[in-house]
Simulated scan of single mutants.
Amino acid sequence: MIRSFICFFTLFVSTFSFAADAPLPPKDKFYLFLLVGQSNMAGRGVVEAQDKAVNPRVLMLNKEGQWVPAVDPLHFDKAAAGVGLGKTFGEIMAKENPGVTIGLIPCAVGGSPIDAWKPGVFYPPTKSHPWDDTVKRVELALPAGTIKGILWHQGESDSTGTLAPAYGAKLQDLVKRLRELVKEPKVPFIVGQMGKFDGVPWSPEKGIVDQAHRDLPKQVPNTAFASAEGLKHKGDKVHFDAAAYRELGKRYAAAYLKMTK
């Protein structure tokens, strides 16, 4: 009886381990995309059945560092993590690149200001080091695939009187450092617009950060801006709802494809 149980347990563990790591394609057929920023990149939308649907050619690097099928929530920064823009973006990339597998590297941290995305900086609300943790995940992911893009959505935490004026220069520095991290000086970088919701006025400081996002393609080669015009929030006036995140993923993909094709 005990021997049978041990055999069954061993078989179960080995089967689970096999299932946890998805089989990977050759490196040149595994396109990697880095997902960075704060909560609107991590996603806070309510997860529905469609968000759990598996596409065998869209994978994500999970919290444990395993390549698994990409299903929402992709991120794990906070318990509130839900539907984001990454999965929709990945599915479009897979459709546009037959014979290629897409690998998403979720690294966003809810609430993080851009200054938290520097080496050695500890971010107390999530008890994490946004930049240092991203470095570890990128170093884990790069040997398996080919980096094809960086997606950034952030800015709400910098929309203050003291932080907004310096945001543009910090964003350009971040693009440079992220490109150095992934060892691709010209890799496409897409920045998304903060939520511009009907009936929710923007402060002048938020306008400054938004302008820095809009101006990035004029100042840094191989960058693009994805608009959030007309999208809805989930009721908190800050985060997009699930449908809006999916649409935002489409807009990131459109911006990426326009720039690369």
Rank of each mutant, 00 (worst) to 15 (best):
G149P: 13
G192L: 11
W152Y: 14
L163K: 13
K186I: 08
G168S: 09
V191Q: 12
P201S: 07
V200D: 13
S203R: 12
P143D: 13
L163M: 12
M194C: 06
Y167D: 06
W202Y: 13
G195L: 01
G155V: 09
W152C: 11
Q193K: 10
G207V: 02
L178E: 08
A164M: 05
Q172N: 14
E184H: 07
G192Q: 06
K170R: 15
P143L: 08
V191Y: 03
V187C: 06
M194Y: 00
Q154Y: 09
L174N: 05
S157I: 06
P201I: 12
G145I: 01
D158E: 05
G168I: 02
E156P: 03
E205R: 03
L151C: 03
P165I: 09
L142D: 06
K148G: 07
A169I: 02
Q172M: 14
Y167C: 02
Q193R: 08
K206G: 07
P185Y: 13
I150T: 04
P188T: 14
M194S: 07
I150A: 02
G195D: 00
L171K: 01
G192I: 09
K183G: 07
K186D: 15
V187E: 06
P188Q: 15
I208G: 11
G192F: 02
L151Q: 00
L171S: 02
S203K: 08
K170S: 10
V182Q: 08
E184R: 09
P165V: 10
L171R: 01
H153I: 04
P185L: 15
W152F: 14
K148M: 07
L174T: 00
K170F: 03
F197C: 10
I150N: 01
A166P: 01
K183M: 08
D158N: 13
E156I: 04
D198L: 15
G192T: 06
P188K: 15
G145R: 00
L178C: 06
E156F: 03
A169F: 07
Q193I: 02
I190K: 04
P185I: 15
E156G: 01
M194W: 00
P165N: 11
L151N: 02
P165Y: 09
G207Y: 07
K206P: 04
L163Q: 12
K176N: 11
Q193N: 04
K186N: 13
T146Q: 08
G161I: 12
K183C: 02
V191K: 00
L178S: 05
V175H: 12
G199I: 10
I147P: 13
P185K: 14
G145Q: 03
S159A: 15
P188E: 15
A164S: 10
R179K: 05
P143I: 09
G195F: 00
P201W: 10
K176D: 11
L178P: 04
V191E: 11
A164E: 06
V187Q: 05
E184P: 00
W152S: 03
D198A: 15
G155E: 03
G145M: 00
E205T: 08
G192C: 07
K186W: 10
G161D: 14
D198E: 15
I190D: 05
K176H: 10
D198G: 03
I147A: 14
V187A: 13
S157V: 06
R177A: 14
E184M: 04
H153D: 10
G168C: 03
K170W: 05
K176Y: 11
H153L: 14
S159F: 01
S159G: 07
M194V: 04
S203C: 03
G199H: 09
D198I: 11
G168P: 02
P143V: 01
